[in-house]
Design a binder for these strands. Structure first.
Length: 258
DNA sequence: CCGGATGTTCACCT
DNA sequence: GAGGTGAACATCCG
């Protein structure tokens, strides 16, 4: 369910894997290993080492083993499990997901394991991922950074919010919620926002990000719950509109988003 | 049967 | 170069 809130929950969960010695790697699906990575290279770089630190960069999770870094991306339907546990309070839905072939299992010498489950195989495993192209992280984003991400853009502001090279961590649901909170139409050219609107969008994004992280997951918020036909805006009751923007379904309120 | 789904990448147009 | 559209990836759900 990976937007920034899920990735934050996974980062916290993954703290349980630090300091533990890796004794074996299973990664039987070559498609899931990105950039020519093979399971034997993965084993060479990880086995007998320990995870020293776990970090989140946008929608990536990275595991430092000293000298090398394991990178995980969860695509649209990926989940992280550590010792058979998911992100506990917030990710309970995983228990309903059919267990087939988990694309990555890291076994620890203490008998535990770290596991990636991905029904749709849209995620991936990276070794020493280059994340330098990512924009500033949506968590802790400053107004100036947001302004920089939007400036000069002729694409719809929503497309900019989703562009990980300009702003890292925001997904489809959070982009809609931030724009809804800020009262800005998703189709507005990114560079057309005035100073007050950028300020509003920064506030809306901040609120959407922090509340979803507090909740432990994207979705479940006031606006997320109305993304369906016949729904009305929770702010003033006007029927919501939806259309595809940048290839993604977008919900917005035509009455207060301009 | 068909369309859509919290993501990314790439081909192909304009 | 910028931006748009649609396909692909694979699977489940309504």
């Amino acid at each position: 369910m990976p937007e920034i809130a899920e990735l934050e929950a996974y980062r916290v969960l993954a703290q349980n894997s630090t300091g533990r010695q890796i004794c074996e790697i299973d990664a039987e699906d070559p498609f899931y290993l990105k950039r020519g990575l093979t399971v034997s290279v993965l084993r060479d770089c990880l086995v007998d080492r320990r995870f020293i630190a776990v970090r989140r960069v946008g929608k990536f999770l990275t595991f430092d083993v000293g000298g090398h870094e394991l990178g995980l991306h969860f695509g649209m339907a990926g989940h992280l499990l550590v010792d058979g546990r998911d992100a506990a309070d917030f990710d309970a839905s995983i228990s309903h997901i059919r267990e087939t072939w988990d694309p990555l299992v890291v076994h620890f010498s203490d008998g535990g394991e770290l596991r990636v489950r991905d029904r749709r195989r849209l995620g991936g495993v990276f070794l020493d991922p280059d994340l330098s192209h990512l924009g500033p992280d949506a968590l802790g984003l400053t107004t100036e950074q947001l302004a920089g991400a939007l400036t000069g853009g002729r694409a719809p502001v929503k497309v900019r919010l989703l562009d990980q090279d300009h702003l890292a961590g925001v997904g489809n649901l959070m982009a809609d919620e931030a724009l809804w909170r800020a009262g800005i139409a998703p189709t507005r050219p990114a560079g057309s926002l005035n100073e007050a609107e950028v300020l509003r969008l920064h506030q809306g994004l901040h609120d959407a990000v922090t509340s979803s992280i507090r909740r432990g997951a994207t979705g479940g918020g006031v606006f997320d719950s109305v993304r369906h036909y016949g729904a009305s805006c929770p702010m003033e009751g006007h029927p919501l509109s939806h259309r595809r923007i940048g290839g993604r379904t977008s919900w917005f309120c035509p009455a207060h988003q301009h």
